[in-house]
């Protein structure tokens, strides 16, 4: 009798497993939270120290165009403009292609064709960015030089390289968005006598719009943060771009170029950390944008 009572009152093996599992997941969450917070703290303190310790105005940093931290000139506008330039241009070129490929994969292609394309896209995702950069340096830059003169380095070369890099991201997310459109939408539209094209244009794409926009924003986030490949083809001149084929510099390319040549704690180093902080804030903005699109764009 007592034995049974004992067994019933004590936690069973399954309960203990349960607790242990919860413990492990809480520990992991805690660790990641600490990691994220310390990264944010680290970048924020470093990135802000230029404004507090060296007496640089935030407005100077954001809106002036002279970048020469060794001489206390830290106008980051050229980098900000160029970063947005390559990002928007790459997304602009990539989106139509991505939607076309995704439509083909979900609406037209036989199963085998879709699977083949899937493999190709996954392959594109897996290629390291340094290889994209090398190809850009060996093929895209000389092509730009022949077509437009000058050195060939610039926003256009950067956008072309980024186009190839963000295409798979946008495509695969668009595929997901199109697949999520319920099949009875398609059936209903076809039953009403709509052609395939009308169904795609008026029903499927409309229903998938928030998903596609999310895909584009994710692609842009990737393009914005890409450093190595862009640095190899952008030309790295910290000045406002005159046109699409004049050398310029992005936030990330300036970071990778400068970080090895600066001393921790000096102004040139802090200026780079401020660029990093700007990148971090932009990543946050992209995330919020994705959340907003997902919430507002739902079909009613």
């Amino acid at each position: 009798m007592d034995e049974i009572k004992d067994r019933l009152l004590k936690p069973s093996k399954a309960t203990k497993q349960d607790q242990r599992g919860r413990m492990i997941s809480y520990l992991s969450i805690g660790l990641i939270a600490i990691l994220v917070i310390s990264i944010l703290y680290f970048i924020a303190t470093r990135g802000l120290s230029m404004f507090f310790n060296d007496g640089i105005k935030v407005s100077d940093f954001l809106f002036k165009t002279d970048w020469n931290p060794g001489k206390k000139l830290v106008g980051a506008l050229p980098m900000i403009v160029t970063s947005f330039g390559v990002t928007l241009l790459a997304a602009l070129i990539a989106t139509p292609f991505a939607i076309a490929v995704a439509l083909f994969m979900t609406e037209f292609a036989p199963k085998r064709g879709a699977r083949f394309l899937q493999v190709v896209i996954e392959l594109l995702v897996g290629i390291p960015s340094v290889i994209y950069g090398l190809i850009g340096l060996a093929v895209v830059v000389p092509a730009m030089r022949i077509m437009y003169g000058g050195t060939g380095f610039g926003i256009l070369a950067g956008a072309v390289v980024l186009f190839v890099m963000v295409l798979p991201t946008i495509t695969s997310l668009t595929v997901d968005a199109l697949k999520a459109v319920p099949s009875h939408y398609r059936q209903a539209s076809l039953a009403l006598g709509a052609t395939r094209w009308q169904t795609i244009y008026k029903v499927i794409l409309r229903a998938a719009t928030p998903g596609i926009l999310t895909a584009v924003v994710f692609g842009m986030a990737r393009a914005f943060g890409e450093a190595l490949a862009v640095q190899m083809v952008i030309g790295n001149a910290a000045m406002l771009p005159h046109n699409l084929v004049s050398p310029s510099a992005t936030l990330t390319s300036q970071l990778t170029m400068g970080i090895g040549n600066t001393i921790m704690g000096t102004l040139p180093n802090n200026a780079l950390w401020s660029l990093a902080l700007l990148l971090l804030i932009m990543a946050l903005v992209f995330n919020i944008l994705v959340k907003l699109i997902a919430r507002k764009g739902r079909i009613k």
Binding site: N68, K71, T151, F153, Q231, G235, N236, A237, A238, M239, P247, A249, T256, M257
Partner: peptide
């Protein structure tokens, strides 16, 4: 003297 702003390579 300060160099002209131009492209930079690493």
């Amino acid at each position: 003297q300060t160099a002209i702003k131009s492209q930079e390579q690493d």
